[in-house]
C-alpha cells in the first residue's frame, strides 16, 4: 500500500511533457518535430520563457498539453466561420476576436485562445438565422469506405489521418480507410450515340466470305475522356462479338456477317469508366447487285 502511495505521489509530481533539443537542432526543427508545425516556435518560446529562437543542444523544453489541440480546433472553426461570413457583412468585432485568439494561441495561452475563438464564432453565427444541419454518412460493408454528403446547414467537418476537410452543403467527401478525405471525381457522362440511327438497315456489299461492311459508328464527344470503349453484340444482352477502343468519337467496324447488331459505347478517363450509352441497334443486309447482261458476241 505504501509503495502504491509513493508511486502515486511520484506520478503526480512527474513533469509535464517535455522534449530535449537534439544536436544541431534549431527551435524551428523542434517545433516541426513535436508539434508538426515549423511556425510554432513562438509558442515554444512563450512556454519556455525563451527570449530568442537560439536553443542549446540538450536543453529540455516544456511542451503544450492537450489544451493546444482543443484551442487549435476552435481557432480553425472560427477562421472558417469568419471567412464564410466575409461576403455577408461579417461583424468587425468577430474579426477582432479572431485576431485576438490568434495572438493568444501564438503566445501559448491556449485557454484564452479557445475562449476568444468561441466568441468570434458566436458573434458570426449570432447574426444569422439558424439553419438546420442535415447530412448523411454511408459506410460500405467492404473496408469501411465512408461517404459523407451534406444537404444543408453549416459545413460538416470530416477528419481522417490527421486531415480535416470541411464539407459544405451540396458537397460530398469520400474517405477510404487509412487515407485522408478526398472529393470524389465527377463520373464521366456516358456518350450519346449518333450514327447509325436506331434500327437503321445498312446495305453493304459482301466480301468473298459473305461478310458485310464497312459500318461506321459515331457518337457525341465527351470532355475529359482518354478513350472510348465500343461493344457490339448479336442480341440485346448477349456477349460482345466486337470490342474495340477509339480515341476519337467514331469507330469503323470490321466486316460482319449479315444480321442484327446492338452496340454501346463507354467513355474512359482519369475518373474511371462511364456507364454504357443507350443501346443502339442496326441491321446489316447484303446489297443486291444489279446484273445487266447485254446481247452480243459473248451472249
Amino acid at each position: 500500500m505504501k509503495t502504491a502511495l509513493l508511486l502515486l505521489a511520484w506520478l503526480s509530481a512527474a513533469p509535464p511533457d517535455t522534449t530535449v533539443v537534439g544536436p544541431q537542432e534549431s527551435l524551428r526543427e523542434v517545433a516541426e518535430r513535436v508539434l508538426g508545425d515549423a511556425n510554432a516556435t513562438a509558442e515554444l518560446r512563450a512556454l519556455n520563457s525563451l527570449s530568442s529562437d537560439a536553443v542549446a543542444p540538450g536543453t529540455r523544453l516544456k511542451l503544450p498539453g492537450q489544451e493546444r489541440g482543443l484551442a487549435l480546433k476552435a481557432l480553425e472553426t472560427a477562421r472558417t466561420l469568419v471567412a464564410q461570413a466575409k461576403g455577408t457583412g461579417v461583424l468587425p468585432e468577430a474579426e477582432a476576436r479572431l485576431s485576438e485568439a490568434e495572438v493568444y494561441f501564438r503566445t501559448a495561452r491556449y485557454a484564452q485562445a479557445s475562449e476568444a475563438a468561441n466568441a468570434a464564432g458566436t458573434l458570426v453565427s449570432g447574426g444569422r438565422a439558424p439553419h438546420p444541419s442535415t447530412f448523411s454518412v454511408h459506410v460500405e460493408p467492404d473496408a469501411g469506405t465512408t461517404t459523407v454528403s451534406v444537404t444543408r446547414g453549416p459545413p460538416v467537418r470530416v477528419e481522417a489521418e490527421g486531415v480535416t476537410r470541411p464539407v459544405a452543403p451540396g458537397e460530398t467527401v469520400l474517405v477510404e480507410k487509412g487515407r485522408p478525405p478526398v472529393v470524389p471525381a465527377t463520373p464521366l457522362a456516358p456518350p450519346q450515340p449518333e450514327q447509325p440511327e436506331q434500327g437503321a438497315v445498312l446495305k453493304r456489299r459482301a466480301d468473298a466470305k459473305g461478310h458485310l461492311g464497312p459500318v461506321k459508328l459515331t457518337w457525341a464527344a465527351v470532355t475529359g475522356v482518354e478513350r472510348y470503349e465500343v461493344e457490339v453484340a448479336r442480341d440485346m444482352q448477349g456477349a460482345a462479338v466486337v470490342t474495340q477502343t477509339a480515341t476519337s468519337p467514331e469507330l469503323k467496324l470490321p466486316v460482319l456477317p449479315a444480321g442484327r447488331y446492338w452496340w454501346t459505347v463507354r467513355a474512359v478517363g482519369a475518373s474511371g469508366r462511364s456507364e454504357p450509352s443507350v443501346v443502339r441497334r442496326f441491321e446489316l443486309v447484303p446489297e443486291r447487285l444489279k446484273l445487266e447482261v447485254q446481247k452480243g458476241q459473248w451472249q
Binding site: 439558424p130 469501411g144 465512408t146 460538416v156
Partner: peptide, 26 residues
C-alpha cells in the same frame, strides 16, 4: 450502412459520428 442526421439548431447542437475510416463532426 447509412445514417441521415439532422440538427435543428446546429449553433447549439452537435453530433459526432465515427466510422472505420473517419470522424464526422457537425
Amino acid at each position: 450502412g447509412r445514417i441521415d442526421a439532422e440538427l435543428e439548431r446546429p449553433s447549439t447542437q452537435s453530433l459526432s459520428v465515427n466510422t472505420p475510416a473517419a470522424t464526422i463532426q457537425a
